[in-house]
């Protein structure tokens, strides 16, 4: 019994896997304009694959804009990754967007 529990605990701890699903980038500003990076992240923990919407992504652009209220955000790199905690039973979908706040 102890062995089974140990194997289960070890499998949970050891098997943290990440999968990079997609990356995209918009055009990157010139060097002098790359001094104010901005970043937002949206994530959702999904249990047994039950996920009924992807609305957690809806306000990412708005949250980015809030970090640069008087300018433009360029060089936006969007990264979508899946982090598996317990095989297909429990995983996290993570989307991050980074960019540079430039003067408008």
């Amino acid at each position: 019994m102890k062995k089974i529990v140990s194997v289960l605990i070890a499998s949970v701890l050891i098997q943290g896997c990440t999968h990079l699903a997609s990356v995209s980038s918009s055009s990157i500003p010139k060097a002098p304009q790359r001094n104010k990076p901005v970043m937002v992240e949206a994530k959702k923990m999904i249990f047994m694959g039950f996920n009924f919407n992807n609305d957690y992504l809806n306000d990412m652009a708005f949250r980015l804009a809030n970090q640069c209220p008087n300018g433009k955000i360029q060089g936006v790199v969007t990264k979508h990754e899946n982090v598996l905690y317990f095989g297909p039973f429990l995983y996290e979908v993570r989307v991050s967007a980074t960019g540079f706040c430039t003067r408008g």
Partner: peptide, 24 residues
């Protein structure tokens, strides 16, 4: 069993004056 899967997300360039004051 209706579930939503997300395959890809991309955010384009942002003009904050439009995003913060425009219409979604």
């Amino acid at each position: 069993s209706g579930c939503a899967f997300m395959h890809h997300t991309q955010i384009g360039e942002i003009d904050s004056s439009i995003v913060l004051r425009g219409q979604r």
